[in-house]
Design a protein around this nucleic acid. Structure first.
Lengths: 237, 237
DNA sequence: TAGTGGTCTAGACCACGGT
DNA sequence: CCGTGGTCTAGACCACTAG
């Protein structure tokens, strides 16, 4: 047997999706129908459909069925305008912030090296885009800033608040990576365990103060992406 | 039942991994052992272990067992030095290129809009890092460049070749996103179906010629990440 | 040969969604 | 109510890895 049965079946279904036999939003055959059409047991039929879900081609809904995915990714621009309400509004996305945690803590050792000192404000929030939980943001903020702007930071995007008060971000170091949802994140973003996530681990610096913010933003990988424009001055580093 | 059995078990095993009971590289209990310890059927034990694999916590090897993952990600710098052999060497990574396809083709409509014209050289290659297939690169190159440097482009990184010949990249637009492996990619990168991938869809511009290269680099999401440094001139766009 | 994971079957019960 | 997907069982055969 060259390929397992469940795989052969999922490829057949995949072809129908890509060729448009099943349009985005359409329901694909139920487990029962797959069992009948390909003459396999339910476990094999389930497995075939699970393969499609794992490739992000369909989303399954208990009690209803499996439906062809239909998605347009929202773009985070990493260049000039850092993630802001205005930038998201331009893409037709309304941002609301749900605060999970906001308190003064002693930072883990890695973060102490970056921000300096031992104490910082730790904020955890969930960003809802058009009401949909889309991003988990965990950020450490320098203690003086975290204290002064506490009320606003709880309710809005970190960089928007800082820039509004004249604290301009001069440089940002960012690492973009992808991971898979663990239990906590899968609950927060309402995705299955292991769902692909796109993570932006960032440190922001201001001219006068040095590193002022360090944190990570975790978003659904199937709905978001980052764009960057790199201009080269002709010089080589 | 608050949580399914397979989930409860995978969380128990997960705790042991995170707490260090099972060290990176260690073998975790076999399906048979999980069946005995938690008194469940094999399918449930398998499912529990599959949950861990899906979170990237373990890798399973047929005939051997499941082992705690141990990974350090390689960093692609998106800033000044574009992906180059020299930059990778600095991280202790030796790059070799396996050419899959190199030929003159008519571009799909979206790509025609970017590069202009109708014809380009299409190159597909697999990049091996220290001998491990790590990145699938699909790139369209302006026809005159693709023709002149054909031999070299087959065997080295695109940007290295161009810069070596004095064609300097002046600007790059990039979008970083994550996807899940389909069958073709899973074969090429030797990962399971649905494995998380990190994709860099990029367009490079030279001063004189405008857009000269457009393509995407698809890498294993568990082994690679992108870093960017954003400097702001103080101006607002 | 013994142990491991990979695939598959038949059959059961539960929970959710719409009629 | 029926159809959907979610979980679970017991048992079978195959393929790979090791000693």
């Amino acid at each position: 047997m060259l390929h397992p049965l469940h795989f052969v079946i999922s490829e057949r279904l995949r072809d129908r999706i890509l060729s448009g036999t099943y349009q985005p939003g359409d329901q694909i055959p139920s487990e029962h129908q797959v069992m009948a059409e390909f003459e396999v047991s339910r476990i094999t039929a389930r497995r075939a459909i699970a393969n499609l879900a794992q490739q992000g081609l369909v989303t399954v809904q208990r009690g209803k069925g499996a439906f062809v995915a239909t998605q347009q990714k929202v773009v985070y621009s990493l260049s000039s305008p850092l993630l802001s309400e205005a930038e998201m509004a331009r893409q037709g996305v309304e941002v609301t912030v749900e605060n999970l945690q906001y308190e003064s803590v002693t930072m883990p050792a890695e973060v102490q090296k970056i921000l300096g000192g031992a104490i910082a404000y730790l904020q955890k929030k969930i960003l809802l885009f058009n009401g949909i939980p889309s991003c988990v943001d965990v950020t450490y903020v320098q203690p003086d800033l975290g204290k002064v702007y506490a009320r606003e930071l709880r309710r809005a995007l970190t960089f928007s608040v800082l820039e509004k008060h004249g604290i301009s971000i001069q440089k940002v170091d960012a690492v973009i990576e992808c991971t898979q949802a663990d239990y906590e994140t899968s609950e927060q973003l309402e995705v299955p365990l292991g769902h692909p996530l796109i993570v932006n681990r960032h440190t922001a610096y201001s001219q006068e103060r040095g590193a002022i913010v360090h944190g990570e933003s975790i978003s659904r990988g199937d709905r978001f992406c980052y764009s960057v424009r790199i201009e080269r001055g002709g010089s080589r580093e």
